[in-house]
Design a protein around this nucleic acid. Sequence first.
DNA 1: ATGGTCGACAATCGA
Length: 266
Amino acid sequence: MTQPLRIATWNINSLRLRLPLLAGLVEALDPDIICLQETKVPDELFPHGALPELGYPHNVHAGMKGYNGVAILSRRPLTHITTAPDWCEKGDRRHIAAEVQTPSGPITIHNFYVPAGGDVPDRVANVKFAHKLDFVAEATAWFRAHPPVRSVLVGDLNIAPLEHDVWSHRQLLDIVSHTPVETEGLLAWQAAGFVDAVRKFVPADEKLYTWWSYRNRDWRASNRGRRLDHIWTTPDLDPVGHMVLTEARDWQQTSDHVPVCVTLAI
DNA sequence: ATGGTCGACAATCGA
């Protein structure tokens, strides 16, 4: 029996600001691989110095000034995979992929930061919403054309697809992140070859959130959360456990998202 | 119905 492979995902909302918080993530989850979104750091300013001493000497990253940005940190060597397109041809650093070797064979990891989509759920009135829908449609088409094998797709997908992925299904049906056009689009993307790994462990009729707005006075008391962060795997992989690190929402100067983790038998 | 709070980066924009 070999050691399992643990993969975490976190929208860190500024890698440089919250670099010290990564130690808490490592202590709580002990991940082999950490996928980050909203790193908000250009590649030339990526904080290479601090990561090896944290236990993650290997990384791939795609950043830009001020917005977006994704990175994969790893204890094991990574191979940067560059076969995917520049989604919506915007050059906006919302995806990075890498391959990691395991005793049972290579595993491909896709790390996504899907556009949030603005406030108005109308593709004509709101170009950000159109971008979000186009991004999801393009990703769906790409994975249909390139069926994934031994792959994990993680990230801040900015859509809560199931009724109990939001605090009130009825009240959020017209709120960006939970509109039918988005949730149907996300589930179609997932059906292009993936299974929702976290919902294997948490039944669909149980509330589960990974994000709570900064704007709530007391996020825990109001508990108006949404599950925006996801881990999907292809059916040929074997998830054996999961964790949603809700306590991270109480860390000093933390992100509005909390880390999510899945353990794979390899 | 509205406003509430963050981060980046230097007046707002994006979330």
